[in-house]
Design a protein around this nucleic acid. Structure first.
Lengths: 166, 166
DNA sequence: GGAAGATGCGCAATAATCTTTCGTGCTTGC
DNA sequence: GCAAGCACGAAAGATTATTGCGCATCTTCC
């Protein structure tokens, strides 16, 4: 945790860029209350420190033809580290798998997948995921509808926290 | 699905901006092989059509002090539409809940949550989520480690699909 | 066929932004 | 109290965004 080294301006910059990553630097500087050059320096520093990992356009998956979104709970036969890593590597190679998280509890991994349609996903499920060595069980749940999808973290919670420790 | 109205250049633009949302327009134009003005016009059109929903900086949650990530599976007492909407609205108000998706199957909703630490999350869980009316069951799984976290959609799959139908 | 309209490109010019340089003030530590 | 280290902001030049316009291509409708 390096967040303590950040002042309030840095946190404002992060919050603004999380909300609108394409904002011009002058607009950003105006919003956080400093002039453009130091603002740009701060952004560069945040990027180099790894606090900002990158910038992404948020695309409309459904309109683009990815009508299906699925969560898959995967259990493995063996939870030895080598097996875990091997499965993670597989996930990285599957384009339909967008996220893969290792969990505690009965399920070993949760995967967030997208697919153009149900049959594409079934094909991936039966042809790829279920035939992967060491995969013991897969339970899938189709997303009926999305209710909330916010990127990143809630900066208001962070601010609240900082002011309490200050 | 409006993706069929897009040509290959539009899809390249979307792919590039999904990968690097802060790329300059001249760089983008160079990569997709047209000059800057028409490239900017295409980007504006994509934004106005809603295919590009926005741009976001990807921040390092852990380094920012959100060390805990949790998936929560929520079951409701009643699945009447009014109750579903009410729960979704609650989720939108909770800053720690970053995503909320309605699922098919035994579980009604899956929530992706972040929190500064375990006790913050427990506090949210017992003080907010579990005390919400109509919530019947909540099963939580802590994220041990993240293996993959790609934003958006796999454009190579889309390209493959387009070339097949063309 | 062939002309009229629509669409989309690229060039050129201007406006805005980015980025570097440099001088100043403020804190920090001795 | 003073030097060193930071971070800021003004100014200037380089780069980029944005607009206007002419041209080519492609449809569409005689």
């Amino acid at each position: 945790m390096v967040a303590t080294r950040l002042d309030e301006i840095d946190r404002m910059i992060l919050a603004e860029l999380q909300a609108d990553g394409r904002m011009t630097n002058v607009e950003l500087a105006k919003r956080v209350g400093i002039s453009a050059p130091p603002c740009l320096r701060r952004v560069r520093t945040l990027e180099e420190s790894g606090l900002i990992r990158g910038y992404h356009a948020e695309v409309n998956s459904r309109e683009l033809g990815f009508e299906v979104q699925v969560f898959a709970m995967v259990g493995l036969e063996s939870q030895a580290e080598a097996e875990l890593s091997a499965f993670e590597e597989r996930c990285r190679e599957w384009p339909l798998v967008r996220e893969c998280h290792m969990l505690n509890g009965e399920v070993d991994f949760i995967l967030k997948c997208v697919a153009p349609d149900l049959s594409s996903f079934q094909q991936f499920l039966t042809g790829e995921l279920l035939t992967t060595p060491n995969v013991a069980s897969v339970k899938t749940s189709l997303v009926i509808r999305g209710a909330k999808d916010e990127p990143g973290v809630p900066f208001d919670v962070l601010e609240e926290r900082m002011s309490r420790t200050a």
